[in-house]
Nucleic acid binder design. Sequence first.
DNA 1: CGCAGCCTTGAGCAGTATCAAAGTCGGTGG
DNA 2: CCACCGACTTTGATACTGCTCAAGGCTGCG
Lengths: 228, 228
Amino acid sequence: MINSLFSHKRYSFIGFDIYKIIPDDILFSITENIIPMNLKKGQVLFYEGTIPNGVYILKKGKIKKYATGLRGKEHIFYLLKENGILGHHNLLSKEVYSHSAACLTDCLFHLIPKEIFLSMIENNQEIFFSLLKNMSHDFGVFISDSKIMAQYNVRERTALSIMKLDEFFDENDGFKLSRKDHSNLVGTSVESLIRVLHDLKNEEVIDIKKSKIIIRNIKKLIRVANFE
Amino acid sequence: MINSLFSHKRYSFIGFDIYKIIPDDILFSITENIIPMNLKKGQVLFYEGTIPNGVYILKKGKIKKYATGLRGKEHIFYLLKENGILGHHNLLSKEVYSHSAACLTDCLFHLIPKEIFLSMIENNQEIFFSLLKNMSHDFGVFISDSKIMAQYNVRERTALSIMKLDEFFDENDGFKLSRKDHSNLVGTSVESLIRVLHDLKNEEVIDIKKSKIIIRNIKKLIRVANFE
DNA sequence: CGCAGCCTTGAGCAGTATCAAAGTCGGTGG
DNA sequence: CCACCGACTTTGATACTGCTCAAGGCTGCG
């Protein structure tokens, strides 16, 4: 039921599967150039302002992408899970990273070095078009996101975030994300987030068990989100 | 002085010059396929949800791109001026328009039909890479925008918008934009915008002449914006 | 010169941030 | 195994920000 709401990626977190973009034979041909990397929960993969040296494929775990704003407050604008690609934007635009990426869980990455990635897309128009198509699509997602930030209130944004996070974590018994990260995703203070969660619990829209959030009444939740 | 602040596109409105991306010879070869279109101030070029049939190049005038949100309120996320391209995102992602575009002034467009545009980029890797590079760059701009919406207050966002608009309109004696459009760009109500403008006038940061805004003290304005 | 549309001002209220303090949980070392 | 520490979560009180509604003013144009 939730998935039907999110069948069109626009309402979901962006990110796509590079292994569907890169044909198997090409992927196989670069196997020996791929560098595996392990990072623990909480560690930072790359920092805003540093120089990209390749593209990462997240093989295991979950990460957040965020930009640092006023008084160091994190603005989380992107969550990525298994098989997502990251780091390609700033590599392609030849700029330093415009944001940071950190692990929400223990993670395994495959690093495709800069030169390998560039020659790969240069020599394969199919990959090129996939990239272009996916990036074009992502624009719609970003527009939607900035609209939500500009026009929806904390209660509505929180309800939306719960739907998104539940889909993102994709477990059967709800999801767990620190209140700090959650509030930085919603774009509010920790305290305001908690108050809304408390209200939603009282209204029997969600359950909270040891700070884990479980959707209890998705129809009500959609109504609270007030989206579209 | 302002331009130095905006020398890096990230802090400015996005959009780039298609005529720099498409080499002259290629552009010349499709001249006969380009369809010129005139629209009056206030007219809509395309509506959210409709099917793209080509790419537009804005030859003359200024346009706003916006998505419609709660209670029909416009969220303006993009302004485009002469020589900007629009409509390529949804054409490339093969989706309906994720937003609308309307004229802020009388405009002249060049419409490049869908097939012509697609074959053009298919047969020219240089254009392809330019597109990819520019779209990658635009991500940084969008991230910055959504961060501003999420973390900055109305006063700060208004100050930022004045800097951006002054650069965008690029006239020597300030700029004029309806309070409604301006507030939809800042992400606030018309009344709140007006109150901030009033304050900034009293603080001698800006001048307002018949609702036209002129920057009077750029250093103070930057300080008010509180950006970076 | 009068109308329509835009702009401005005021008052009151709802929403949200901030600060302070107390409660809870998980992990660690004795 | 238990006590304690530190980090995270929750609650409460208060102040401020920004929205809405209402009314009045201005301006440009027919």
